[in-house]
């Protein structure tokens, strides 16, 4: 798609510059934050409140591992992380290509309903399988629930034995 007016042209360039810069920022933060990732605070509301990880829990740690090329470690944190990380790595290149050719080649993927539902199905399957695994190896009860904010509050108030 060709940009038409000067304002369209500006919006076209701005969108690609923002996308590329954001992706590079994510990669830089992933690289720098890696040493602190496994001991970092819980920022997931679901995991914090009820102790159950959400479908995307583990991606921060996985991104940090991938930024240091530790693929096996990343897969342990989140099996879909290489897919998401790959998309982030590809973003600056795609943006540069689009700026050079003035063609919005990624648009059909970005606004594809089929891709969206496909990704949703993938996350659903992944989360179901790993939740089942956590239940069977007691990681959910022994690890995640004990790490939650609610557990910490109840423990502090003396409702639970440490």
């Amino acid at each position: 798609m060709k940009a038409a007016s000067p304002s369209d042209e500006r919006a076209f360039v701005r969108a690609r510059v923002v996308a590329a810069s954001s992706a590079l920022a994510v990669l830089a933060v992933s690289y720098v934050y890696a040493p602190y990732a496994s001991d970092g605070p819980i920022v997931c509301l679901l995991r914090g409140l009820v102790g159950i990880p959400c479908p995307s829990c583990g991606l921060t740690r996985a991104f940090c591992a991938l930024a240091h090329l530790q693929v096996i470690e990343a897969l342990r944190y989140h099996a879909l992380s290489p897919l998401v990380f790959g998309a982030v790595v590809a973003t600056p290149f795609v943006a540069a290509y689009e700026l050079a050719t003035r063609r919005a080649v990624a648009r059909r993927w970005l606004f594809s309903s089929k891709l969206a539902w496909g990704l949703a199905a993938l996350f659903l399957a992944h989360h179901t399988i790993r939740s089942a695994a956590w239940l069977t190896d007691s990681a959910l009860l022994q690890g995640h629930l004990r790490d939650s904010w609610t557990y910490a509050v109840l423990e502090t108030l003396g409702f639970l034995r440490s």
Binding site: V43, P55, S56, L110, F111, S112, S113, A116
Partner: peptide, 21 residues
């Protein structure tokens, strides 16, 4: 997207938005 009459939010990105604050 339907309300705005244009493509404002990418659906694949919408899924992944939950992954990153």
């Amino acid at each position: 997207n339907a309300v705005s009459g244009r493509e404002v939010i990418s659906q694949p990105i919408a899924i992944l938005s939950g992954c990153c604050m």
